[in-house]
Amino acid sequence: MTVEQQTVMTGAETDALLGRHETGVLSLARGDEPYAVPISYGYDAGTRQFCMRLVSTPGSQKRRFLTDAPLVRFVVYEETEAAYCSVIADGRLERLPKSELTADHVKRYGTAKRPLFEMWGEPKAELTIDLYELDPEELSGRRIEVD
């Protein structure tokens, strides 16, 4: 691959990329132990916030890393014949208590692709689904034009 040009994406370009995708990779850590997992998300370009449903089972690795407000990095990327683009969001993932849900939350989560419950062997009723929101402290996109 010949790299032609690397550019910083504008806010509008970043919003557009996040709007046309439904999944990304969420990275968490405990001490020096990393954990990354592909997840589905919803994105509100108006507020530049993400909403996520995180599914876990008792004793799962994911649950060990998910505290109420972990610092995270979330990555969404795409590759076409002409360019490779990526968006990185850094910030604190805030758990949304179900007792605080509003109609606006329901609308926002309606934009997020549903979790792939089929991945788990357990019945849905045995899975824990927690709702999280990410209001990134930093949100940046880059594009690399390729030959």
């Binding site: 449903r53 849900l101 939350h105 329901v106 989560y109 997020a112 692709k113 549903r114």
Partner: peptide, 9 residues
């Protein structure tokens, strides 16, 4: 209108 907020169905 938007489905279950928890599971998305």
């Amino acid at each position: 209108n938007h489905g279950c907020v928890v599971c998305g169905t």
